[in-house]
């Protein structure tokens, strides 16, 4: 009996959470703003070009994510370098690594703590499908983070190179605005200069 009431109370709790979230989504300022002074397209361009990711690393892919923020690759060029430590202030959750059963509730909590216009990137084979852990003997790895939360962009690789993560962010911008961002894409020189020592 005690067990049943506990389940009932948990269900009520999740139900209230969901209602609150839907309420918040209705209050979502974006819709109001786009009606008042901004066209939807302008707002989407703004959202696409300042995707602040969460400081959230799970496994070896996180090292590549850090490398993407550092010199030589530098995702700051696309306005995505502001790694916010608090879930309330970020737009993008990069699931970078293996999600096991112990981590799954934390991932869901973090996703639900993010405010409304939010996106998820599944980075690396483990986050996409379990990767090397998707075997018969697997007992503790979630095979794909899309079993827990909706994923917008998948970046394959084990781990993917930083350039792949940049490409993933550009793909996400494409998904948000419906066109390739940013406006004048800076071209890399075709032949990189070879420095002779």
């Amino acid at each position: 009996m005690g067990e049943e009431s506990k389940i009932k109370s948990i269900n009520a709790f999740t139900q209230s959470l969901r209602e609150e979230y839907e309420q918040g989504a209705i209050e979502h300022q974006g819709a109001m703003l786009s009606q008042l002074l901004l066209t939807d397209k302008v707002l989407k361009v703004c959202q696409a070009n300042s995707l602040w990711p969460m400081t959230f690393g799970l496994a070896c892919c996180a090292i590549e994510m850090m490398a993407t923020g550092m010199a030589r690759i530098d995702m700051a060029r696309y306005g995505a370098e502001v790694f916010r430590p608090s879930a309330r202030q970020c737009d993008l959750l990069i699931v970078s690594g293996t999600v096991n059963k112990k981590m799954a509730p934390a991932v869901i909590t973090l996703y639900e703590q993010m405010p409304a216009p939010k996106w998820v990137i599944a980075m690396g084979n483990c986050a996409i499908s379990g990767g090397p852990f998707a075997v018969e003997e697997n007992y503790n790895v979630i095979e794909g983070v899309d079993r827990l939360i909706p994923v917008d962009v998948y970046i394959p690789g084990c781990p993917p190179r930083p350039e792949a993560l940049i490409e993933g962010i550009l793909k996400l911008q494409e998904k948000i605005t419906g066109g390739r961002q940013p406006w004048p894409q800076r071209k890399m020189p075709e032949k990189p200069e070879v420095i002779k020592i």
């Binding site: 918040g24 989504a25 209050e27 979502h28 300022q29 974006g30 703003l33 786009s34 901004l38 302008v42 707002l43 361009v45 703004c46 959202q47 070009n49 300042s50 306005g79 502001v82 309330r88 737009d91 405010p115 409304a116 216009p117």
Partner: peptide
């Protein structure tokens, strides 16, 4: 400026 507009459009929790 883009960051500011984005922030205006975020949900207030």
């Amino acid at each position: 400026i883009l960051d500011g507009v984005k922030m205006l459009a975020k949900q207030l929790i």
